[in-house]
Nucleic acid binder design. Structure first.
Length: 463
RNA sequence: GGCGCGGUGGCGGAGUGGCUACGCAGAGGCCUGCAAAGCCUUGAACACCGGUUCGAUUCCGGUCCGCGCCUCCA
């Protein structure tokens, strides 16, 4: 029996996962605000929850997991981007959405089941805000609608912050339309040059948190299984989502399990758009294969902080080289069966312990190198590939992995030229003219081509 | 000030109350014409101080250090 254990931010403990509806899983992950290219900090939750998505599909069946990841396409940062560039908002958001989707695909992520956009769900948000006013949890003031935090007895359960502490810590002046310093906006007025929608409170736009409450409700129901995102969303975003959804629905529970990935750091500092120290996925892809970036991300457990370094990327590349190296030896062998190693599954079932899972990949790869019979080789190949598939890596043809042009280092040599030089060198070797054969090998090395002689053939790879 | 996370060998990074993480780098060896790749062997760690225990890197308490949240942020 496979038991998946997940760490729940709400309880700060690992628990055995049990779906609310037996045999089917609903998961909501906060997606990007689309005003700029994705940085690798944005990519971390996408990759982490993609692995969880794959794992859940493995356990419950491909069609049994409903994975919703929203796109925030109405936000003051987008308005700011519009004012900076003068471009139309729709131009900015649709271009950014396309870039995001393409970047995430190159990083080996599956598409979520649904990728709803906030602006397509304004009526649902308005409906929920009306409900909150009716239940006495929200009020209208100077064109704004605010959630009244004191109206909810157990506000702050997720972040374990209480209202008094929040007020003490508040570094921002309290807006005049707020009855309580902790209150937050559900709806705010838009000027004529800002995007807006008609509502019972005039033309305006939604506050930050309401879209996730409205869209999770729409696609997953009032209560669902897993809600994920980065640690920085715990407060205020997820706390406020809980407040909105629980009060509007009259339910005590919103998401059953809250999962949060740790920060991605650069030079020991949190990477974020506001600090300006971010590395975009685009830039990284100029120098590294998507799988390298992905494996680098998975080498650290998702709840730990991850310091992003070129050394880490080099290690990820080296690991992939060794996996593909093992696979290359058996490239012409059909895989025996897509069997998942038990040890590998055990690692992932324990709160998605990807470093432990990668260790198993190394063991499988080593076993594959040592395997002697065809049957053993085929079996290990199947296990390695199946494990890689669950992590979203090892999707390339091994020869292609080594031989395809790496934009990082242009060799200037075509495949044809390389093969001719290898042939010339092997002729020299047959003649025992090692001075010549070594000279050719050195020349190739100068162009970034490394040779590997085996008994039957000479393989090559680009550095 | 409040809340929270972390300090593991040269580096990255898991994990455990008593026994090998794993990878990279290093050393030695096998293989090779020589290499490369691969394989074998190998050295090296659990911030500090107390406590619990037969025994703690692992549990408890304290100290120091680093980081985050409390304000937009994955």
């Amino acid at each position: 029996m496979t038991v998946l254990k997940l760490y729940n931010t709400k309880t700060r403990e690992k628990h055995a996962f049990k779906p609310i509806n037996e045999g089917a899983v609903g998961m909501y992950v906060c997606g990007p605000t689309v005003y700029d290219y994705a940085h690798i900090g944005n990519a971390r939750p996408v990759i982490i929850f993609d692995v969880l998505f794959r794992l859940l599909r493995q356990i419950y069946g491909t069609g049994k997991v409903n994975y919703v990841r929203n796109i925030t396409d109405v936000d003051d940062k987008i308005i700011a981007a519009q004012q900076d560039s003068g471009e139309d908002i729709n131009v900015i958001t649709s271009r950014t959405i396309r870039a995001f989707q393409s970047d995430m695909k190159v990083l080996g992520n599956l598409e979520p089941s649904i990728e709803p956009q906030a602006t397509d769900h304004i009526p649902q948000m308005i409906k929920m805000i009306e409900k909150l006013i009716l239940t006495g949890n929200a009020y209208q003031e100077q064109g704004h609608v605010c959630f009244h935090v004191p109206s909810m007895a157990n506000y702050g359960r997720l972040s374990r912050l209480n209202r008094e502490e929040l007020i003490v810590g508040a570094r921002v002046e309290v807006a005049p339309y707020k009855r309580d310093p902790a209150d937050f906006i559900l709806w705010k007025p838009s000027s004529s040059d800002q995007p807006g929608w008609d509502s019972p409170w005039g033309r305006g736009r939604p506050g930050w948190h309401i879209e996730c409450s409205a869209m999770s409700n729409e696609y997953l129901g009032i209560t669902f299984d897993i809600h994920g995102g980065g640690q920085d969303l715990i407060f205020p975003h997820h706390e406020n989502e809980i407040a909105q959804s629980c009060c509007a629905n009259g339910e005590d529970t919103f998401a059953q399990i809250w999962m949060h990935n740790g920060y991605l750091m650069v030079d020991g500092e949190k990477m974020s758009k506001s600090l300006g120290n971010f590395i975009t996925v685009r830039d990284l892809l100029d120098s590294y294969h998507g799988e390298t970036i992905r494996l680098c991300m998975l080498m650290t457990h998702y709840r730990q902080p991850l310091n992003w370094t070129s050394n880490g990327l080099a290690q990820a590349k080296s690991s992939l080289d060794s996996f593909y190296g093992a696979l290359r030896q058996v490239n012409d062998l059909p895989q025996f069966i897509d069997e998942l190693s038990e040890e590998f599954m055990t690692a992932l079932l324990d709160d998605i312990n990807t470093p432990e899972a990668i260790k198993v990949l190394h063991e499988l790869s080593k076993d594959l190198n040592k395997a002697e019979t065809k049957k053993a080789k085929a079996q290990l190949k199947g296990k390695l590939l199946a494990a890689g598939k669950l992590l979203g890596i090892l999707n390339c043809d091994p020869n292609n992995w080594f031989e395809s042009e790496n934009s990082n280092l242009k060799s200037g040599l075509s495949e044809d030229q390389i093969n001719k030089l290898i042939l010339a060198r092997n002729n020299a070797r047959d003649d025992k003219n090692f001075a010549l054969s070594d000279k050719i090998r050195d020349e190739l090395l100068q162009s970034g081509i490394v040779l590997e002689d085996s008994k039957s053939i000479t393989r090559w790879k680009r550095l």
